[in-house]
Amino acid sequence: MPQTAIDLVHLSRQTGGDAELERELLTLFAQQCARHLRAIHGGDANIRRDAAHTLKGAARAIGAWQVAEAADRIEQQLGQAGTSPREDALDALTLAAAEARAVISRLDCAA
């Protein structure tokens, strides 16, 4: 697993090296991430599962592997009938998302 919260090499491959597109995708991800985290922490199981699934896909697209892995774990836990995500899984997602958003913030400031 990569040591950074965002795999910038993967992101560059995804965007063909277009730095402006990378910034747009990262900004969009940061916004989506906040919205999906709110949905994952509240709402009914279907909304939570859908939010985890969508966040997982968005994270994979930009190379936020830790976010994707944590969202996948929550999606799987919510897929089991009558099951809520475990607190440690929610904590792992919250931390991974915070780390990814911090990297995005630093990159945005450096631009």
Rank of each mutant, 00 (worst) to 15 (best):
9 V>T: 07
10 H>D: 00
10 H>M: 00
10 H>V: 06
10 H>N: 04
11 L>C: 06
12 S>W: 00
12 S>I: 09
13 R>L: 08
13 R>P: 00
13 R>Q: 10
13 R>T: 06
14 Q>R: 13
16 G>E: 05
16 G>A: 13
17 G>H: 01
17 G>I: 08
17 G>Y: 00
19 A>V: 03
20 E>M: 11
20 E>Y: 02
20 E>H: 11
20 E>C: 06
21 L>M: 07
22 E>M: 12
22 E>C: 05
23 R>N: 12
23 R>D: 14
25 L>D: 09
25 L>M: 15
26 L>F: 05
26 L>N: 01
27 T>I: 01
28 L>G: 04
28 L>T: 07
28 L>W: 12
29 F>W: 13
29 F>T: 08
29 F>Q: 12
29 F>K: 00
29 F>E: 04
31 Q>W: 13
32 Q>E: 09
33 C>L: 01
34 A>G: 06
34 A>T: 11
35 R>L: 14
36 H>L: 12
36 H>Y: 03
37 L>H: 05
37 L>W: 08
38 R>E: 15
38 R>L: 02
38 R>S: 10
38 R>A: 09
38 R>T: 14
39 A>V: 14
39 A>C: 02
39 A>K: 01
40 I>R: 00
40 I>T: 13
40 I>G: 13
40 I>E: 07
43 G>T: 05
43 G>P: 08
44 D>P: 06
44 D>A: 02
45 A>W: 00
46 N>L: 00
46 N>H: 15
47 I>W: 02
47 I>M: 15
47 I>D: 13
49 R>Q: 09
49 R>W: 08
49 R>S: 07
49 R>Y: 04
50 D>K: 00
50 D>M: 14
51 A>F: 05
52 A>V: 08
52 A>C: 04
53 H>W: 14
54 T>W: 03
54 T>I: 02
54 T>H: 05
55 L>V: 09
55 L>H: 02
55 L>Y: 03
57 G>I: 00
57 G>S: 06
57 G>D: 03
58 A>M: 11
59 A>W: 00
59 A>L: 09
60 R>T: 08
61 A>N: 10
61 A>R: 02
62 I>F: 11
62 I>W: 04
62 I>D: 07
63 G>C: 12
64 A>P: 10
64 A>I: 05
66 Q>Y: 07
67 V>L: 11
67 V>D: 15
69 E>Y: 02
70 A>K: 02
70 A>Y: 03
70 A>T: 13
71 A>W: 10
71 A>V: 03
71 A>P: 11
72 D>A: 09
73 R>C: 11
73 R>E: 05
74 I>D: 03
74 I>C: 01
75 E>H: 14
75 E>G: 10
75 E>R: 13
76 Q>P: 01
77 Q>N: 12
78 L>C: 10
78 L>D: 04
79 G>M: 07
79 G>D: 08
79 G>N: 05
80 Q>K: 07
80 Q>P: 03
81 A>V: 06
81 A>Y: 06
81 A>F: 09
81 A>K: 14
82 G>C: 03
82 G>I: 08
82 G>A: 12
83 T>H: 07
